[in-house]
Structures are given as C-alpha cells and as structure tokens.
Design a protein around this nucleic acid. Structure first.
Lengths: 338, 338
DNA sequence: CTGAAAGCGCTTACAG
DNA sequence: CTGAAAGCGCTTACAG
C-alpha cells in the first residue's frame, strides 16, 4: 500500500502538505491541491487508519453498546431497528460501528468492555442503557469519552421514547373502546427502566377513565413471545371476565393472541389484545396488531446525531421522542357492550 | 492514561521488556515478570490499541459484513442468530466486531467499504456472501486479508448450511405425510445463492416420491412475512386443491398461515404449511412451525473459528453444516387421505 | 534473559 | 501558502 510519503514524493510536496490537503485545510494553491489529489489518485492511496488514529487520537469508530441481558439484542426486533437507525446515520457521517455486547453485573461492566473503552480505540459510545443492574456509560464518561444513552439512565445526554405517553395512549384507546375488565401483561421493573413510565401511563389512563389500575390483574413476562402466551393463559384462566389484554411489547402480545386462540377466544371479537413497539411483524400478524410506534430507527438516528454533536464539542439537548398509537385490528369494543 | 514507558520506568526495565512480558514471550526471570506485572497493575495500564495496531499491523478487529440487500440484516432473525454465534466466538478470542453493511451493485462494493478494507483497520472478514449481484470478499482477498464466507460463493474458505439436504428432508416429510398437491412459496434466485440448492433438494424429494416437481405450483416471495401471505393467497386461489405449502423461510410460512386462516383454511387440519430456518419465533407461533433447523449460531461460530485459523496461517477446511428437520404442529396428513 | 533503537504512517504545532 | 521535525505509543529484529 502506498503511504503518505509516496504521495508527497509523487506530488513534489511535503507530507504535511498532503496531510493538510486531504483534511481540507484551506490556504493552498489550487495547483498544489490538484497535484496532491492527482498523486493520491494515481497511487490509489488510502490512509492508514491506525496511523491516523495514533497521531490524531481519533479513530472514527463508535461503539454501539447493547448490554447482553435477557435476549435483547439477538432476539428483539425492536433493538434491531434502533441499530438500523444508528447504522444509517453513522455511515453517512463516515463513522464505523463497533458492536459491543458487554455482560453486566452489579459490579458493573465486564473487563473486556472496560479494556475496550480505556484502550483509546473508541471515539464515542451509543448505549442502550436501560437495565437497572448497572450503567454502561458511567465508565465511558469517566474517561471523558462522549456518550449518549438510549434510555432512561439520565446521567448524561440521552434520547428516549415517551413511554409514559405511549402507555397512556394505549390505555385511553382500550378504555375508549369501552373496556373495563382489562388485564396487563407487563415486565418486571428489574428488566427495563422504561417500565416505571409505562406503568405510570397506564395508571393515568385508567384513572382518567374512572378505573382503578391497582385492581387490574397483571402478570409479568420477559418480553418473549412464549412468556406472553404464558401470562395470557394465567390471566385468562384466573380472570375469564377480562375483555382486553394490554401487553408491554408486541412479541408478548403475539404470544397472548396465540394463547387466546387456543382458549377459543378470538381476537378481537372476544378479546382485545394490544402490544407495544410496532415491530415489523406487527402489521403482518393475524390480526394486525394495535400497538404503539416508538419510532425505533429515529431513536437510533437521533442518538447518533447527538453523539456527533458531542464529538464536535457541542452540548446536545436530550430528547424525549413522542410515541404514537397505531390502531389496527387486534382491538375492538367488548362484546357485552355491543 | 499511563503508557508503556511509564510502566517500564516504574518497573525499572526497558519498554521492550514490558512489551514482551505482556505478549507472553518466554525467557524472562520470574522476578522481571512480576515487576512488570506489578507496575502494570499499580498504574492501571491499558495498551493503546491504535499504537499497537500501527506497529504490529494487527488491530484485533474483524469486520462482520452483511451486505445491505432486501431487508436482510435488520429484519431477518436468521441473520441475527448468525451474528449471535459470531459474537460469542469473537468475544472469547478477544476480537472486536466491526459491523459493516456495504451497499452492493453490479460494480461491486461501495467506496466506503473499499476504503475500510484497504485502510488496514481490519484483520479479517466474515461475510454473508449470498447475493448473486456481487462478491463482498473478492476485494478483501485481493488485499490478502483473511476472509471466510458464510454462503455459497465458493471462492475461498466458506461455511454453509446443507440447503440441499434441508429442502430434501422437508419435501420427504411432506410427501411422507401423504401430500401430493403441494405448492411452493419460493424466492427468486437473484436474491439468494442458496435457492438453487433448495430447489434441487425439493426436486429430488419430489422425484423420490414419484411426483413431478416441475408441475407443482410455485410463486416467489422476498422472504418477508407479507410476501408469504401474498404468495399463499395467489397459490390457494389458483389452486384450491393444494393440501400443503412448502415455504423457503419461516417468515413467509408465518405469512402463509395467517393468510390461510383468512381463507378459512385451518393449519394443519386443512392445509400443511412448513417453513425453513427455525427462527426463534417458529416454536412460539400458532401453530408451532414444522421447519428446518439451519443451526444459524453454529454457522457463525464455525465461520469465526475458521477465520481464527486463517489468522494463524492455517488453512481451514470449508464446511457444509448439516440441516435437520424439526417437526412441530403445522404439518399433518392431508384430510382426503384420512 | 534484557535493552537500544528504529520504525509503523500519520498529524500538528511551529516557523517562515 | 508550505515544510521540517517532533511525536503519537507501541513492536520487533538485532545485538549482547
């Protein structure tokens, strides 16, 4: 591979000049600039990233960090769509994505991740920091590496979805249809920091409809399809009077619908089931899911842009991204009120 | 951050010694070794990866390349499970994963990817190289960077799933149940190099059962759930006599099942529907899908191990990973024969 | 068993 | 507007 030196020689200038021309420093004769560019072209010169990193301290690599808890990254379509947004934005800005999946424990991140962060290889971090057990970004920020959180650990710049609004909208939708015997398929708060907000939103929605959220049957799953089925089974067995199930993500809602079918309850005729996230399959499901669109790709895009701001020494505002109710066919008025 | 020099000073040795001790070179007094290790500890020294990369030429970064075609990486659970296998193996061996999603055109890979490869930042490449339009690894190998393909472009070490066997097993299963009016929801060969093998396997299975594969109705989708529904609709409208649908991936099978339900054909009582891939949701679906397990995580793991072999200057054998029939509840004997 | 020294390929004050 | 030179923090023959 040709080096900067080769280019300099070929163009008849110094390496400093080549370097500066390539980094778009002004103050160069058009002639010099052209000379350099021609030499670059002729030689097929590509900068050595390691050398650049060593001397400039910038690697143009950002770590995208999805803590490895429950099955998040490798099974959750929602997480994937966030990644999609990050990818498109990073690629546009010439940043490379290093995928990191640290194991978290109450003691913090694992040693491998710690080394990565301290090794100087990473210009910035975007972390899905939503697990109560430990913070990913703490160690990153302590090293003064720019970091943005996607989630609720508001210890620095962050972007999160308006979960309170989302679950409020959902409860309003369900009560608005006339339901009052409502079951909740939730998730333990230890699994996700957003849960508090979601529960609060549901409560507010229930209050507004004159219902007591505290008395609504609720069983927690783990976000998987299977757990949704199990929760729905228990809920419907113990409370056959339920006419609606609010599930805290789409996969559990799908599980719930499959379970309802086995119990000979057809959705939405006999039972309304709603989800959360609006993953791609939600629209293709049978019946298509009424759910909350979190704008996952946009979360990723915004997080990336905030990070680029930080890298430019600006201080981006944290943002709470609005959620939006998507009404499809898994929800309908209860039969009794018909 | 403390540097090698700091460690050397503190330990009273040369930087060469520190470097060698840290890379486990033998021939050192236990005393020297301990001195160095203590200094490292005391200072909290972490090697600077950029410096190491520049002087050694090794970055310990491997690029995991999923060409950005149709919706592969960000919507296909199967791809994700491959990534899961790669991740676990790489993490064990101390390699970091750079996620790269080049755009492919008949001219080859995009400029961004080309630069990445030529920049010296990448020790090796694992590529999902299954799209006929262009090869990802060609440019990589031309630069003598170790690369392994997951897929069918057998231009270097590769690992692939035994698609021929998989589809043969599937056809045998379906014909074995007594079906002869079988429809196929396929995918255009331009989308995936494995299709040829899958079609060949189906044909062989049909032959073996005394059926003519050529006359079986077939419509191609694009691997998405929605396309599966559409194909099933067309197929069942045009050929109401069909008693079984073989789909070339699970997502299309799920779409087909949903569509069948809308046409009042219950699965498997009125219609057998089988898939391919055994994605996580296949087991949780209603009915649970009969499908082919491709051992996706294992594909990723094997690919990683082959790459580590290459990095150690060994020449790994390419492998064709057996597939396995997973019988669940979406398949049953046809009604008529009952 | 250990060290001096060159070198990896860039960038960046500094000087002119 | 351009260049000489130091420096980023390691590794690696080579020598002893």
């Amino acid at each position: 591979m040709p080096t900067l030196q080769d280019v300099a020689k070929r163009a008849g200038v110094s390496t400093a000049t080549v370097s500066k021309v390539l980094s778009n420093t002004p103050y160069f004769t058009d002639e010099t600039r052209e000379n350099v560019l021609h030499a670059v072209d002729a030689l097929g010169y590509i900068p050595n990233l390691a050398a650049r990193a060593l001397s400039s301290g910038k690697t143009h690599i950002i770590a995208v960090v999805f803590p490895y808890v429950y099955d998040a990254i490798f099974a959750d379509p929602h997480v994937l769509r966030i990644l999609e947004g990050i990818e498109s934005e990073c690629r546009e800005h010439g940043y490379n994505i290093l995928l990191s999946t640290p194991r978290l424990s109450p003691d913090g991140v694992d040693e491998h991740f710690r080394q990565l962060i301290l090794s100087g290889y990473i210009d910035g971090v975007i972390a899905l920091d939503n697990v109560p057990v430990a913070s990913v970004t703490e160690i990153v920020r302590r090293k003064h590496i720019p970091a943005v959180d996607i989630g609720y650990r508001k210890s620095g710049p962050y972007v999160c979805s308006d979960d309170h609004l989302g679950s409020l909208l959902m409860m309003q939708h369900v009560t608005g249809l006339g339901h009052s015997a409502i079951g909740v398929v939730g998730a333990p708060e230890a699994l996700h920091l957003a849960n508090q907000d979601r529960i609060a939103g549901l409560r507010e929605g229930a209050d507004a409809a004159g219902l007591d959220f505290g008395t609504m049957p609720r069983i927690d799953g783990d976000f998987s399809t299977g757990s949704g089925a199990k929760c729905a089974q228990l809920l419907l067995e113990q409370h056959p009077e339920l006419t609606a199930l609010i599930c805290l993500n789409d996969r559990m809602a799908m599980g719930a619908i499959q379970q309802a079918r086995q119990l000979e309850r057809s959705v939405p005729a006999d039972l309304t089931v709603v989800g959360y996230d609006d993953i791609p399959m939600a629209a293709a499901f049978d019946p298509p899911l009424t759910t909350i669109d979190q704008q996952a790709p946009e979360l990723g895009r915004i997080a990336s842009r905030m990070l680029f701001n930080l890298l430019d020494e600006h201080s981006p505002e944290s943002v709470v991204l609005p959620t939006r109710l998507v009404v499809r066919r898994s929800s309908a008025p209860p039969k009794l009120s018909a």
